[in-house]
């Protein structure tokens, strides 16, 4: 995600449910947390959790969106050429919260029934158009898609898993790849 994500306004109760579930994911993993345990941690009744989030999938998607918008939030980029810096910072944030990073990555890979896999797309398009207004549509689309892909927690997950990279190596490789994608529009 690139800028502040569009998260529907949450009630105080909802926010305390999501925060409680987030804590428990970090302590226990996302599989083993019951609604009863979440309710107890949030200090509310179990049926209140059910009323707000009728299914586990509802709860998980809301939690992933909340994590993206709060714990993984970052300053808005003012230029498309700031995106590699934002990506570098994002990778460092993901690395500090590995359990949560996996949860957010996984919810974005569920197809249409999951979280949006490219929440920053519109902002990237806006920034790219400001810098390179005359790009042909296929190139514009390819650049936005490549940056959107790099600017996601999937990058951190993949580089860590497939190459055993640490925080510094992941931040470096992701930002480097984003600079490569931007090379094509530096002089337009």
């Amino acid at each position: 995600m690139t800028g502040p994500a569009a998260v529907p306004a949450l009630s105080g109760t909802q926010e305390s449910i999501l925060a409680a579930y987030t804590e428990l994911i970090e302590e226990l993993g996302s599989d083993d947390v019951s609604y009863r345990v979440i309710a107890r941690r949030a200090g509310i009744a179990e049926r209140t959790v059910f009323r707000n989030y009728p299914t586990r999938v509802d709860l998980l998607l809301a939690t992933a969106a909340w994590i993206e918008a709060t714990l993984f939030a970052r300053e808005e980029s003012r230029s498309i050429f700031d995106i590699p810096l934002a990506i570098r910072e994002a990778m460092e944030r993901y690395d500090a919260r590995p359990e949560l990073a996996h949860v957010v990555a996984e919810t974005a890979m569920r197809g249409v029934s999951g979280a949006s896999p490219s929440p920053g797309r519109e902002q990237l398009e806006r920034l790219l158009d400001a810098e390179a207004p005359a790009l042909d549509p296929a190139r514009r689309r390819a650049i936005v898609a490549a940056l959107s892909h790099l600017d996601s927690v999937g990058t951190w997950v993949t580089l860590r898993r497939e190459f055993g990279m640490d925080r510094r190596d992941i931040a470096d490789a992701a930002a480097w790849a984003a600079e490569a994608v931007l090379d094509g529009i530096r002089h337009t």
């Binding site: 974005a108 890979m109 490549a146 892909h149 992701a174």
Partner: peptide, 23 residues
Amino acid sequence: RRVAASLRYFSSAMFWARLRTGF
């Protein structure tokens, strides 16, 4: 390492899924 990581990530099922669902 940078090149291998980039090629790996752009050839992933995640790339396909992101571009199919998000784009």
